[in-house]
Design a protein around this nucleic acid. Sequence first.
DNA 1: TATTATTATCGTAATATTGCGATATATAAT
DNA 2: ATTATATATCGCAATATTACGATAATAATA
Lengths: 107, 107
Amino acid sequence: MGVSKTHIFSEKHNQVASVAKVLSHPARVAILEYISRQEGCICNDLVDEIGLAQATISQHLNEIKKLGLIKGTFEGKNLCYCINQGTWDTLQNLFGEFFQNVKFNCC
Amino acid sequence: MGVSKTHIFSEKHNQVASVAKVLSHPARVAILEYISRQEGCICNDLVDEIGLAQATISQHLNEIKKLGLIKGTFEGKNLCYCINQGTWDTLQNLFGEFFQNVKFNCC
DNA sequence: TATTATTATCGTAATATTGCGATATATAAT
DNA sequence: ATTATATATCGCAATATTACGATAATAATA
């Protein structure tokens, strides 16, 4: 066993879970915040800033990228990662909705 | 290897990650939504509604409970799980802040 | 083209999560 | 007290995640 049964859940629930999964590691939260604080950002900065190996940072970046929360563009020699505002807004809404829709009608 | 290095991250980043972790499985998202939709709620309903084994639902409930997002009170024979509004509001703010604070000053 | 610096991928070890059957515990009703 | 029902815990197997060193790929520059 041990296989997540994603197929038995609704699209919406899986979506919320996917976003949450990306945010469920402090390194990725820290990376997103750091990128958003900078004018431009290269991966090597992150290695220094976060304190994990370069390979590990790259893996985390990849998971964030798969969700579409960041995009990389080359600026001269360096790859510049930036927040993807469109996706960010969408996912912010998705979460906002989820939190908002809960009712407290019990106990 | 394989040990998450939570100690190298800030309190805030670890907090956001912990909340996200609980929401990172569709079953838990579905459970929270279902509980919030009901007047009162017993675990057996969840087993039918979600479609996972009773033991598995119980485990998921426990993880949500550890975060303080739900609380259980007995109503006669049944244990009634409800959203813990205080914690819910706090965590909603934590997330709202995180999403809000990101700036798009690049690319 | 060769060199250097940056980023991605591969392989692997350690640990964590998911899921379930079996079983224990708890509460209500008989 | 016994029984029935609801929920929690235990133990295990399958899978996923995390981390890192080594190495490959990419791009600017000499």
